[in-house]
Design a protein around this nucleic acid. Structure first.
Lengths: 127, 127
DNA sequence: ATATCTGTTATATATATTATATAACAGATA
DNA sequence: TATCTGTTATATAATATATATAACAGATAT
């Protein structure tokens, strides 16, 4: 597992975990049906409490990134081929704020789209 | 003032305020040197505590969106024409997570760029 | 069978964040 | 002088974050 927690960050640990696991799935480091480490294993690896891992896993489950089975543990769900509306609505709201701040900070539309394009390519090239 | 607070939202009030003010600046509803309502006035309008407004204003000040003067109150700063590095770094990190989740949810690069492009145009057409 | 591995649940504690309520102060201004 | 700024201080309450221990139920490998 390539999880790096920044304990100085203002982003809560369980959210850093969630984000890095999502990035791992998008990068293909975690394939569909792959098992994630058990909550105890990962907690011990990172040196944090198992409930913090559990909170991240349950959040990922509620967002449909992983499934949790009492026997097998947490497993990665297949990527979607059709986006669901609720996600797109959330995405648009987040992007609205992000783009507003970018406009204030002098980032042109082209600059912004170029940044996004490069990030997208970073994910794709490793799959 | 066109501030709408969702008291059911999990996003803290002071952050909803911050975001909507940034969106107001980006849309040109607030022009450079415009005064924002006083903390007491806005608190009374929305029906929340003045310290919550103060927290939002001071956050906006620390992020260089507004200036706060003891006499004139809070005023909108001019938009930047050159982005600063710290902001771009933050933006890239946020976009990295957002794009990772979008990939998992089946949103293609073209879909994503089109959404961003439209949001950018929404801001521009009102200026 | 027994030991060991899952997630899950419960309880308790500590700290930080968010939001409110009151009050007072200093400076500018009408 | 009264009134408007932001600012500071104190107190309180609710919620969120993180940890610590312990125990339970189900699956599994030896």
């Amino acid at each position: 597992m390539f999880i790096k927690i920044d304990f100085q960050s203002e982003t809560p640990i369980y959210l850093q975990l969630r984000n890095q696991i999502i990035e791992g799935i998008a990068k293909g480091h975690f394939k569909p049906n792959d098992s994630l480490p058990s909550v105890r294993q990962l907690a011990s690896d990172i040196g944090i409490n198992l409930h913090t891992i559990n909170k991240a896993y349950n959040l990922l489950k509620s967002e449909n990134y992983i499934a949790i089975d009492r026997r097998k543990g947490a497993t990665v769900l297949p990527l979607m081929d059709e986006p669901d509306m609720a996600f797109v609505d959330d995405l648009k709201k987040t992007l609205n704020t992000l783009i507003a701040s970018s406009i204030c900070k002098g980032i042109s539309k082209d600059d912004f789209l170029t940044i996004c394009s490069k990030i997208y390519d970073n994910f794709r090239e490793e799959m």
